[in-house]
Design a protein around this nucleic acid. Structure first.
Lengths: 130, 130
DNA sequence: ATTTTATTGCGACATTATCGCAATTAAGGA
DNA sequence: TCCTTAATTGCGATAATGTCGCAATAAAAT
């Protein structure tokens, strides 16, 4: 199935490329000025994931976040790393340190999803009165 | 708030204790013979998590799984480890190897959620004709 | 036995994500 | 440039998971 270059696709990809953190569907919808339908955003994102342009991270809040992840996508290397989700500001960012997981014999890994949640340094310093 | 010892609570806890893998709400509802309301099951499980009797794991399918996790709960040690979710049979099991995550300065970790999904050895061997 | 209040069951609700289908529109060829 | 094809979109409906309010129930203590 050939991909087409639509405005929605371009807008979402640009947004993800320029964003330092992973974005959820509603973050994307909130940021983007064009009015793109909810279902379309999901479909565009799912296509990106199929094409391995973007990584899908499932948060410990059960929501999906999408990240361009230069490190892991462009280099096409399997650089498994954690993401940190701040429960205060909602930001989901890469923790660059690589993580290795050893599976028992006969197990096949298809997806890695490592999430740590808590308070990011920005929110922590705001809270303590900075 | 004092806890009471109800039949639902006992049944669910026994099930989790005797189960080798983490269970989702619908697994629990499917296994348990007594007819317990969906909301009740969730509430019992949430209480267990509050009391740190049970650990909540959020799968990369976005669903919550609950595990008694002898290693991490009884010993009250923070033994962060991954869980493996088989996308074929649905089983979610502990990978015992401990994982350490280094956070940047000023970050606070409140929750660790490491999931690897793929095919477990049982399903893999079935598939290849065993 | 009576009181207190944690717990349950039921239904409604919230949220996240997907799907079917008709209408658009990008891309390639005439 | 116009036409054709089929990928994509928008809309509404739907699925799935989880929570909440409230009245009824029942565990625990007096």
């Amino acid at each position: 199935m050939k991909r087409r270059n639509t405005d929605s696709k371009k807008a979402i990809l640009e947004l993800l490329e320029s964003s330092k953190s992973a974005l959820s569907h509603d973050m994307i919808q909130g940021i983007i000025s064009r009015n793109i339908d909810r279902a379309t955003i999901y479909r565009v994102l799912n296509r990106f994931c199929e094409d391995k342009i973007v990584r899908r991270i499932v948060g410990d809040d059960g929501k999906q976040y999408f990240a361009y992840c230069i490190n892991c996508v462009e280099k096409k290397q399997k650089n498994n790393h954690f993401h940190f989700r701040c429960t205060q500001c909602g930001k989901v960012e890469c923790l660059n340190e690589e993580v290795k997981v050893a599976l028992p014999d006969g197990y096949e890994m298809h997806n890695f999803n490592g999430i740590v949640s808590g308070i990011c340094s920005d929110c922590a310093s705001l809270r303590s009165g900075e």
